[in-house]
């Protein structure tokens, strides 16, 4: 169920260039079930900045009533968020949207998880849940440069993990698709979140595989009421537009026009 709650900051630290890890505690954590869902955050109690910021859920810890998100402090709002200290309260609305379907991978199967930049975080909870049900996971994570890399250790503990950097300063040089071409992994289903060119390349590289892609778009309400964050669909889909916030952000491959 969607709730609004002033959640308390438990931990907050920078883990890479401009990337922050924020852990919050509160009842709302107990509503979070599906990886790939997001929360809508009000970074200020004033109307400046006005709108909430959508940020994906990176991991859920119902036992401690906590959840963690990773975000890039790139704009005005997220920079304000990065100043929050343990004990501070943050207005959270969520969980929102439809996340990655864990049920689409069966026990004993292999799932390929491909993330790019700030698209990597939601794959972490996904990998945890897949591994918990006995699905083997392969992680291919792309970043700009060595200073942007995060969560390599966390993913490595769950499965094979490959890091790619665009400038070659760490791991394999190039894009995730370059590494996938070399690796040629065996898998049953792929899940991905990252920049549009990456999602497009994945759809083209694996035309016959079952896959699920997570999208982003500038959002208003986050609930599906304002029609701001629509994405254009392919001819295979009846609706011309779907809403990223409430129909997505995760869609099966072939639904969103890339």
């Amino acid at each position: 169920m969607i709730k609004q709650e002033r959640m308390k900051v438990v931990r907050h630290k920078q883990i890479a260039d401009d990337i922050f890890e924020l852990t919050l505690i509160g009842q709302l954590s107990l509503e979070m079930k599906q990886p790939g869902q997001f929360v809508h955050i009000r970074v200020s109690d004033s109307f400046e900045p006005l709108l909430r910021r959508p940020i994906s859920i990176c991991s859920i810890d119902p036992e401690h009533m906590e959840f963690t998100m990773l975000y890039r402090a790139g704009g005005r709002g997220t920079k304000l968020l990065s100043l929050k200290q343990p004990g501070d309260e943050v207005d959270i609305l969520g969980p929102l949207g439809n996340g990655f379907p864990v049920e689409e991978a069966n026990t004993g199967e292999t799932a390929l998880l491909v993330g790019g930049g700030i698209g990597v975080p939601p794959l972490y909870e996904l990998s945890k849940q897949l591994n918990a049900k006995g699905v083997r996971t392969i992680h291919v994570l792309g970043f700009q440069s060595i200073n942007n890399v995060f969560y390599e250790k966390q993913f490595s503990e769950l499965g094979e993990t490959y890091i790619v950097t665009a400038d070659g300063s760490y791991g394999t040089k190039g894009f995730v698709t370059d590494l996938l071409a070399q690796l040629n992994p065996e898998f049953d289903v792929f899940y991905s979140c990252g920049p549009l060119p990456m999602l497009k390349a994945l759809e083209q590289t694996y035309p016959d595989k079952k896959g699920f892609l997570s999208f982003e778009e500038r959002m208003g309400c986050g609930l599906g009421a304002c029609y701001a964050c629509v994405c254009k669909t392919t001819d295979a889909v009846e609706n011309d537009y779907l809403k990223v916030c409430s129909d997505g952000p995760v869609f099966p491959r072939g639904v969103v026009a890339l």
Partner: peptide, 8 residues
Amino acid sequence: TPRVAETS
């Protein structure tokens, strides 16, 4: 899209 942009 984009259909929205935040302002002051």
